[in-house]
Design a protein around this nucleic acid. Structure first.
Lengths: 338, 338
DNA sequence: TTGAAAGCGATACCAA
DNA sequence: TTGGTATCGCTTTCAA
């Protein structure tokens, strides 16, 4: 019926005995209560030291209702983590949480229903907060938020008015940077290949493209927008179609690096050259952007920083604050493809 | 002092009242005890349904000493997760655990010391088990194992005799496959670029290379072994050095795809062609292997499967079994580079 | 500032 | 098979 790891676990009772104080005082010391007599405090600390005491978190959780756990929820199936983005973000989050004595509980599952297993788990109060990265439909997020669970979203909520705290890369600005770079190197017919526009990142990068087009005194031509889904294959297919319909395209902004590479594959398959005939810009500055030939001009985002920002937002929410959204800047990295 | 998510949480007491039975019976029903009268059982279940009851895991944890949490420990700093491998493995693990009502606690930190924060955390009994992926020094693992914490290692323990359960890709066989492929396509001077040989994967892939060399009736030439560390840059540097000393190299087995790409960069920089002058084989079958030009001939490993195997091994250990090590087969994927 | 004692919500023993 | 009850280890009133 008890924990088997240590044959006999030290408890407050024993510490109290050893230090000659009460359990209550031990608790006070353990929780940094300053109103404890220094000598008694020292005695308790000595007892802790001597016994190698380890706090039992389950007991504390039962008593306080707080678990010390923050869920990181990835709304997707297993394949999601194939994109290193999630791993990097998650470790950024984990790092910050750990420094604040919180642990990262990883939940990878499609959030389809309002009462799937993940939803139930989160509603049970088994975590002190939930960070959602990659949200498709945010009804679960809203529900939990309404129920009072501290919730933070990575990405920009689609429903503007929502009061749910979030942090995000400034994808709109990033999309503009990429597109403007193409214009400034002389492109006139600039197409874009979007990511999943159901996700805020996909939508906003597209918005950035549109903004840049109009800023350059042109009209947004819907024919130049190819909708894809972040994958190499989808981008290649879409690019082939764009080329067939608009042979005069001379620049492409792909919403991530993998799709930029897919676009390049299509372009070269049609016998054109990158960047001479068509310049291509990606997004992410992934490893692939560096190793591909031609290397990819791309928009770098600070992924670890994003994780950190999201985690810090969570900490603020837990402290009861109402943190402002954080937007992280992007940076254009010029290489060979544009 | 209480959980704030639901204003008033339903407890066994209330369920008992509603169902007209005792707390003890409620507990029995909740834990699937079959020796409960069907009618009472139905009554309890009805009460659960009606009240939207949610089990309080902290209370159970305090009472049973089990937390329902399994730690996945990645012995590295934040950058580790930049390699999608870890993310994929982790989600494979997470998937299996979730199906067994266990949650994944992610711990990303250098395991340098025997009493760093991670070590303390694990020793506290805050998890029911720990899965170590990527272990550099296994003294912490051994210590925890000795203390009775269920422990599983992903990878092959360096110290053979250890009784710690593990699962791994058969890296030795994979290394041989890659190397044999080079020989069978006519290469005579086959070099290798290793990963971190402090890690079992790096060591074993090298071993596979050596085995293949001798199987082909040749002597292992130490001059043909370039030690690198999984990165593009390290591989490129090492490859340049190998080429300078051994201009007759006509085949290279790189211990991962990224290094294969680094090697190709070096080879092409020296004005040679892949695969015509020098054939290159990688390992992992990552996205990059598919998108790179030339596309990379590589050894595919089942990464999700590895996560699943590791998680299932953990489940067995928790059940008190002594599971045999699992070795997952690899598969050669032939593309353009060799 | 300190201590005694009553919870927190489940489990599991012991009787019946 | 069932119920009563002690118990897990910590927190937090309430009095002193």
């Amino acid at each position: 019926m008890m924990n088997e790891i240590t044959p006999t676990r030290t408890t407050y009772d024993e510490l109290a005995k050893q230090a000659g104080v009460s359990k209550a005082t031990v608790s006070r010391v353990m929780n940094g209560d300053t109103k404890v007599h220094p000598e008694r405090m020292a005695a308790v600390l000595a007892a802790v030291e001597a016994s190698g005491y380890k706090l039992n978190r389950a007991a504390r959780a039962l008593s306080t209702g707080r678990t010390g756990l923050i869920a990181v929820v990835i709304d997707d199936d297993v394949s999601a983590l194939a994109d290193p983005f999630w791993g990097i973000v998650t470790s950024g989050i984990s790092q910050v949480l750990m420094q604040n004595e919180l642990q990262t509980l990883l939940l990878v599952a499609p959030l389809d229903s309002l009462d799937g297993p993940v939803a139930h788990y989160l509603e049970r109060g088994e975590v002190d907060g939930a960070i959602f990265v990659q949200v498709h439909k945010d009804n679960l997020v809203r529900k939990l938020h309404k129920q009072g669970l501290p919730v933070v979203v990575m990405g920009t909520p689609m429903s503007k008015a929502s009061s749910i705290p979030f942090a995000d890369t400034d994808n709109i600005a990033g999309g503009s940077q990429a597109t403007n770079h193409l214009f400034s190197r002389g492109c006139r017919r600039v197409a874009t290949i979007t990511g999943d526009v159901e996700a805020s990142a996909g939508q906003n990068r597209l918005q950035g493209y549109k903004n840049a087009v109009t800023e350059n005194g042109l009209e947004v031509d819907k024919g130049l927008i190819g909708f894809a889904d972040w994958t190499f294959e989808s981008a290649k297919t879409v690019m082939l179609r764009l080329l067939a319909r608009h042979p005069d395209i001379d620049g492409v902004f792909a919403a991530n690096d993998l799709m930029a590479i897919g676009a390049i594959a299509a372009i070269e398959e049609r016998g054109k050259r990158v960047p001479d005939d068509i310049a291509v810009v990606g997004f992410d500055d992934s490893l692939m952007a560096q190793t591909h030939r031609p290397s990819i001009t791309t928009v770098r985002q600070d992924i670890v920083g994003l994780g950190v920002a999201v985690a810090e937002t969570m900490l603020a929410v837990i402290r009861g604050e109402k943190p402002d959204p954080k937007m992280l800047p992007t940076e254009l990295v010029i290489r060979e493809s544009a």
